[in-house]
Design a protein around this nucleic acid. Structure first.
Lengths: 138, 138
DNA sequence: GTATTAACTTGCATATTGCAAGTGCTTTTA
DNA sequence: TAAAAGCACTTGCAATATGCAAGTTAATAC
């Protein structure tokens, strides 16, 4: 999964080369909802990612500047992960995935509530959330 | 890849369970650009999908009603694949992926031209393309 | 100073992918 | 009309990736 073998020049293909697997976008999702996560936080997510897979995905995402590490304010033993601008820019993709899924799956109420906001003013929602995620308070 | 093992109720996770791999969205992409494709058409795409992988992905996408098979008008030996409404509804996801990729990769000129149209009027573009893909002319 | 927590790493069994070579129907061609 | 070619897959097998459990290492808590 590490190897940088670009399959074609197609933007979809290039994107999938980076985060087109079953786990990467879940890491991005966690960071969008929680803003900052530790390694342990990711492990707590409902899907149950294995520790080695998590480590390899975090590395790929970091190498590709979608996420970045920063020091935890409380402890040197902890690491905080955060989305970069490039990662935050995946927000529209993430939102459209949620909207699609809402139409074809039964989804949790809290997520439904969020999507209600999205549908009221998508551009406004994205702008506000981007601003939230962007804050440089490290 | 066939097994229906839902990892969680998260809409993102559920979506990735269906098409969260390196190939499925490329099949969807081909169908969005070409409208209808044969098995051989998919094989011709730049990324070079293996025949067995293609067969397994087509099956999963069909089982999940994202694509459907229809008879080829010219020959009984050929099969046409087409997006269902559920598949067409992935258009916003596909567009956002392209827009993200345009920002962070070098992408082909023809795709850039398409995205120029998208940026002029995203909703209009989606509506028009949806209509194109929806035609029931089989 | 010992125990615990946090972030990984390692080993190994299992599952998925990728490649090459079939198979079994059509359809075309000589 | 019989042989060749096209088309949509299957199959076998080696290579790679995933998933699970059990380390390891460093930092903090007790």
């Amino acid at each position: 999964m590490n190897k940088t073998k670009k399959r074609s020049d197609c933007p979809v293909s290039c994107s999938l080369d980076l985060w087109g697997d079953k786990w990467s976008l879940l890491i991005v999702r966690d960071l969008m909802f929680a803003k900052e996560c530790t390694y342990g936080d990711f492990l707590k997510s409902a899907e149950g990612i294995a520790t080695n897979i998590l480590a390899s995905r975090l590395l790929v995402l970091e190498e590709n500047k979608i996420i970045e590490k920063l020091d935890h304010p409380d402890s040197k033993a902890k690491v905080l992960y955060r989305l970069t601008r490039k990662g935050i820019d995946l927000l529209p993709v993430m939102i459209e995935i949620n909207l699609w899924a809402e139409k074809y799956f039964t989804i949790p109420d809290d997520r439904k509530a969020m999507l209600k906001e999205v549908k009221k003013d998508k551009a406004g929602f994205i702008k506000a959330m981007t601003k939230e995620l962007e804050r440089q308070d490290n």
